[in-house]
Simulated assay, not measured.
Amino acid sequence: MKKLIASLMLLGLFLGAVLLAVPHPRELYSLITADEPSALPVPVQGVSLGAIADTWGSPRGSDREHKGVDIFAKRGTPVLAPVRGLVLDIGQNRLGGNIVRLLGPGLQVHYFAHLDRFGPVKEYEFVQRGDVIGYVGNTGNAKDTPPHLHYGIYAYRQGAINPYPLLMAGGGKPVSLGMG
Rank of each mutant, 00 (worst) to 15 (best):
P25H: 01
A53K: 15
P82Y: 14
R117P: 11
Y111M: 02
L95P: 01
P174F: 12
S38L: 15
L166P: 06
G152N: 00
K74T: 12
L11Q: 14
S7I: 02
R60Q: 03
L11A: 14
G171S: 01
V47C: 08
G152W: 00
L11K: 10
A113G: 08
P41M: 14
V44E: 07
L19I: 13
G180V: 13
G180P: 08
H148D: 06
H148P: 03
L115S: 05
N141W: 13
A6P: 02
P105H: 04
E65D: 07
A51Y: 05
H110A: 10
K173T: 10
Y151F: 15
P23Q: 05
I71E: 06
Q128D: 11
E36I: 00
T55G: 13
W56P: 06
V136R: 10
P82Q: 14
G130S: 07
D144G: 09
V109C: 10
V100F: 04
I133N: 02
V100L: 07
G91V: 00
P23N: 10
V83K: 02
R117H: 12
L149M: 03
F118C: 02
K143Q: 09
A160H: 09
G12S: 11
L49P: 00
G172W: 09
Y135W: 12
P82C: 12
Y124A: 08
G91I: 01
M168P: 01
Y111K: 03
Q128Y: 08
A6R: 11
G119V: 10
V47L: 08
L166A: 11
G106E: 11
V79F: 02
Y156C: 04
A160C: 05
G16L: 09
L11M: 11
Y135T: 08
D144P: 01
S38K: 15
H114L: 06
L28N: 14
G119P: 11
E36N: 04
M179W: 15
L13D: 08
K2Q: 11
H150E: 01
W56Y: 06
R64A: 15
R94T: 03
L103N: 05
E27H: 09
E123S: 05
Y151E: 03
L177A: 13
P147F: 14
P78A: 06
K67G: 05
P23F: 07
I161C: 07
V69P: 02
Q158N: 10
S7V: 00
G61L: 04
D35F: 10
I90L: 00
H148M: 04
L31D: 00
I90P: 01
I99L: 06
Q45M: 08
L149T: 01
H110K: 04
M168W: 00
Q128S: 10
F112V: 00
L15M: 10
G68R: 05
Y164F: 09
L20Y: 14
V79M: 02
G85C: 05
T77Q: 08
S176E: 15
L4K: 13
M168A: 01
H66W: 06
R94V: 07
L20S: 12
A142E: 12
